[in-house]
Amino acid sequence: MPIPSVEPTVNAALSTLLEAAINNKTKPPGSLGELESLAHRIGLIQRTVHPRIVAPAVIVFAGDHGITAENVSPYPQSVTWQMVENFLADGAAINVFARQNGCALHVVDAGVNHDFGIRDGLLDRKIGRGTRNFAQQPAMSHDECMLAIERGAALVGRLDGNVIGFGEMGIGNTTAAAALMHKMTGAPLSQCVGAGAGLSADGVAHKLQVLERAVALHEHASEAIDVLTTFGGYEIAMMVGAMLAAAEKHMVLMIDGFIVTSALLVAAKLQPAILDYCVFSHCSDERGHRLMLAHLGARPLLQLGLRLGEGSGCALALPLVHAAVNFLNRMATFESAQVSGKER
């Protein structure tokens, strides 16, 4: 399957119409701040001055990582499958926030080291029972990586909505994300490595040492797909495919935290125009995420000190997406409300 192709949203005529529509609402120009930029972006994504939100959904991709053998997480690998069970039991934060905000939730087994069997609410797209330990060998084969991308893209093809949030679950995946960040942005590893699920200072130092050895071992990996194959996870690769397919369908992409943004770094290397379709939900408290966002020129909607993952930031930011679209469509204009506009 070829990599999905993403068209830029640039449209000067439509941009002018959207700016006029936004500025003609009964408010001082710019007074709704980021909501105005968000409404403009969504209008360009949907190619209309009357955008709408249809069937928003969050997809949580779960996968295990061989790098956990290097003791880079304070939690055992079994927590990945246990949290998938929690998602299916409607007990996780993302379940609460998605339900609260009228957002569908889909849970995907991209590569968990567990046999779930056939389960209601679980989409089985398993590539393998966790990746290999990239401190010793590439995490995936090229074929496995491309299959994960393909399966992620195919999942998006099943959705009827036009807004998609991305979430993940996978013990060890902040280590994979830190490696991807380093290779995709050129930032020093020391600026990419954080506490993840709660490492001590000594644990973070050990994690950095593991990554330094792994990066040196795979120094040859430089192209986006090679980097993803070498350091990524099945859930991260599947997100890359899903992101590219969603942008190809002109959907609004809601980007969560550190791990999801690492997938976007890869996707943006493959198709730079994908950034036109992204809404950055929040700035994570995981070290490195702020630098990721700066590298992408992103302006996150929320800053709540989150570092949970699961797509939780997407669900929490969704009301702001609704608000941006609603004010553009429903707020009175100066003419309709018979309110005097700005004189000069």
Rank of each mutant, 00 (worst) to 15 (best):
Asn113Glu: 14
Gly198Thr: 12
Arg330Glu: 13
Leu293Ser: 10
Pro29Ile: 04
Asn24Ala: 13
Val252His: 05
Ala176Gln: 03
Val54Ile: 14
His106Ser: 01
Tyr234Glu: 00
Ala39Thr: 07
Arg41Cys: 09
Pro76Asp: 09
Ser73Trp: 11
Met254Ser: 08
Phe334Ser: 05
Lys269Thr: 15
Gly313Tyr: 01
His220Phe: 04
Lys183Ile: 00
Ala214Phe: 08
Ser222Leu: 03
Gln271Val: 10
Val107Phe: 09
Leu147Ser: 06
Ala57Met: 08
Ala337Lys: 02
Val156Lys: 01
Ala247Glu: 15
Ala195Asp: 15
Leu270Ile: 13
Arg287Ile: 04
Gln191Arg: 13
Ala247Met: 14
Gly66Tyr: 08
Asp285Phe: 10
Val107Ile: 13
Asp90Gln: 11
Ala57Gly: 08
Ala92Leu: 14
Asp143Met: 03
Tyr234Phe: 15
His322Arg: 08
Ile118Trp: 03
Glu150Thr: 05
Ile53Ser: 11
Ile67Pro: 05
Leu18Phe: 14
Gln46Ile: 03
Ile164Arg: 00
Met254Ala: 11
Val210Phe: 13
Gly170Leu: 02
Val79Met: 14
Thr174Asn: 14
Ala154Cys: 10
Ser73Cys: 05
Leu32Asp: 11
Ile118Phe: 01
Glu150Gly: 02
Ser15Lys: 06
Leu105Glu: 11
Glu70Phe: 02
Ala214Asp: 15
His50Phe: 07
Val156Ser: 02
Ala12Gln: 05
Val58His: 09
Pro8Tyr: 06
Met83Asn: 07
Pro188Asn: 08
Asn329His: 05
Val325Thr: 05
Gln82Arg: 11
Ser37Val: 02
Ile259Arg: 00
Ala20Phe: 13
Ala62Glu: 05
Ala89Val: 01
Ala110Gln: 03
Pro300Phe: 03
Ala139Lys: 07
Leu270Phe: 12
Pro8Met: 02
Thr48Ala: 11
Arg213Phe: 09
Ala13Gly: 03
Arg125Thr: 00
Val339Asn: 10
Arg330Tyr: 11
Val54Glu: 15
Ala221Leu: 06
Ala337Trp: 02
Thr230Gln: 13
Asp120Tyr: 04
Val79Ser: 12
Asn162Leu: 04
Val112Asn: 12
Asp120Cys: 01
Gly305His: 14
Gly309Thr: 09
Ile94Thr: 09
Arg99Met: 09
Ser73Lys: 07
Asp64Phe: 01
Asn24His: 11
Glu150Cys: 01
Gly232Trp: 00
Ala57Trp: 00
Thr333Trp: 13
Arg125Met: 02
Leu302Trp: 14
Ala92Asp: 12
Gly161His: 03
Ala332Thr: 02
Val54Asn: 15
Lys25Ile: 13
Ala324Cys: 08
Ala89Trp: 06
Ala178Arg: 02
Arg129Phe: 14
Phe97Val: 06
Gly288Phe: 09
Val112Arg: 04
Ala92Val: 11
Gly233Lys: 00
Asn86Ala: 09
Tyr75Asn: 13
Gln271Asp: 15
Phe327Ser: 02
Ser73Phe: 06
Met331Phe: 07
Leu180Glu: 06
